[in-house]
Structure formats: structure tokens, C-alpha cells
Amino acid sequence: MRSIRKIVKAEYRPIGELITYSPMPTGSIDMIDPFIFLNHHGPQTYKPNNKGLPFGPHPHRGMETVTFILDGDISHKDSGGNESIIGAGGVQWMTAGSGLIHAEVSSEKFKEKGGDLEILQLWVNLPARLKKTEPWYKGIQKNKIPIKEFDGGRAQVVSGEFLGTKGAFQPETGINLAMLFLEKGAKLQLKVPAIHNIFFYVIKGELQVNNQQAMELHLVDFGNDSEELQIEAIEDSTLLFGHAKPFDEPVVARGPFVMNTIEEINQAYKDYQSGKFGSWND
């Protein structure tokens, strides 16, 4: 079985009234190439007439965001002209590429009515050859995302493939992502190419993976010495699972930009300030 280097507990980092846990980066783990950042917002319940999510217009360059809406919704808008409202169970994929401005807020209905909210946003790096690619966005509702059922659970196959089922997205970088829902007692055996890095974040519940306990709000960092993964659900659990071949490139991240050199970061700030990321109209 694949070895486990460490199991990291997410740090509690609230953003105003928004409950937020951050398993990566922390003092214990910087990144799992090409996965570079994860924020877990909620779970929490918003009262009627709330302000919703606080993520107003801001820029990105050189990376991708994958946003999983477990509860609530997100109203997306960007400087490329894309707009959508994606509800519970849906996923948003945005390739920032050469640069754009976007906002991720709650819908007017959610702000008026309130309700439960739980959202994960994962940042995935882009290799140098794609840092300046054309920005791209797509939001997909829950009923359009393929499901792979297995004994004791199911997987929502977001990208790449999982157990032979192709995902809703097929990124050029070959990133594989799935949201796994396991019932208590479920057992799952997976094979992941040893060269691939694994992203394994327990959102809810308790799992045993390769004979080690992984509790909710914990990220498991694996070695690259075997293909074999054995997972058992000690209780009903939800897991964000991914894997990809690492890019093995220098990574320089500053604020909303992820590039290969500090010079490229400085240029990103200059380009944004000079209006090269597009205009924003409320």
C-alpha cells in the first residue's frame, strides 16, 4: 500500500462571519503539486436577509479554481462575460490563465431567504506552458455531473475519470477529481499511478486509509511508493479525492496570482492595475 507521510488538520481561519477551514497551505504542508490551496467554508446556516458570501470582484492569473457547492449556492460573474448561479451539488471550474476578474457571491434568493451553506474551493496550478492561456469558465449543476456507484457509496466524478467513469470536465492538465460519499462500513480499493500525487481531504466523517485513521477536516499526504489505496468508512463520510502527475516546476504564489517567478508575479500586478484583465461593471 502507498505510504502516508503525514495527516494534517485544517486550520480554522474565519473570514468575517464565514466559517472557514484551511487544510492547505499550513505550517505543516505547503502544497501537493499541482494542488496548491483549499478553503472549506461552512457548514453553517445563514439567517434571512443576510449578506451572503464576501468574495466580491478580485483578479487571478496562472491557476484554476474548482469550486464544490455542497449546500447553498454561488452566483458567479467574471470579466470574460460569464455569469451563472450554481446550486447545491454543482461545481464551477474557472481557468484564470492569462488573467481575469471574477466575483463569487450568494444569489439574491439565498441572501433573502437564508439557508445552509457549505462550499469548498480548490486552487490547481497551471504549468508554465498554460499560464497565459485564454481564461475559461463553466458551471455545472448537480444533475449534469456523472455518478459512479460502488458498494456502499457513490462518487460524483468531476474531472478526469474515477473507476472508469469520465468526469464532467476534462482539463488539459489531466487533473482527476471526485467527491466521494461513503456509507458506514463501505470499503473501497483504488489504484493510482505511483507517479501521481494524491489529494485526499476528509470533509465529513471518519475514514481508515491504508490502515491509518483520517478524521474529518484532515488532509492526508501520501508518498509515491505504491499504487494501492484501501479506504474504509468508519462512519458515514464525505471525501474530496483527486490525483495528478506533478508539474515539478517552480511555484511562486502571491495573493491571487500563481506563477513560476517573482518577476512574473510583479508583471501580473502591473497588468491588472493597467486594466489588462478586463473591465468590471456591476
Rank of each mutant, 00 (worst) to 15 (best):
M1I: 01
R2M: 04
R2Y: 04
S3T: 08
A10N: 04
P14A: 09
G16K: 15
E17R: 12
Y21A: 07
F37Y: 14
H41Y: 11
T45P: 00
Y46K: 10
P48K: 08
N49I: 00
N49R: 05
N50M: 09
K51N: 11
G52N: 13
P54H: 14
F55I: 11
H60Q: 07
E64P: 08
I69V: 15
H76F: 05
H76Y: 12
E83I: 06
I85R: 08
I85Y: 02
G87E: 15
G87I: 04
G90E: 11
V91A: 08
T95P: 03
A96M: 07
G99H: 07
L100S: 04
E104V: 06
S106L: 09
K109E: 15
L122D: 04
P127A: 10
T133M: 09
P135Y: 01
K148L: 04
K148N: 05
G152S: 14
R154F: 12
G167W: 05
G167N: 07
L177G: 01
M179F: 06
L182E: 13
L182W: 12
G185C: 10
L190I: 03
L190V: 00
K191M: 05
H196S: 08
I198F: 03
Q212M: 07
M215S: 11
L219K: 10
L229N: 01
L229Y: 00
L239G: 00
H243C: 08
D248P: 00
P256E: 12
T261P: 06
K270A: 12
D271S: 13
Q273M: 10
S274I: 02
S274R: 08
N281K: 08
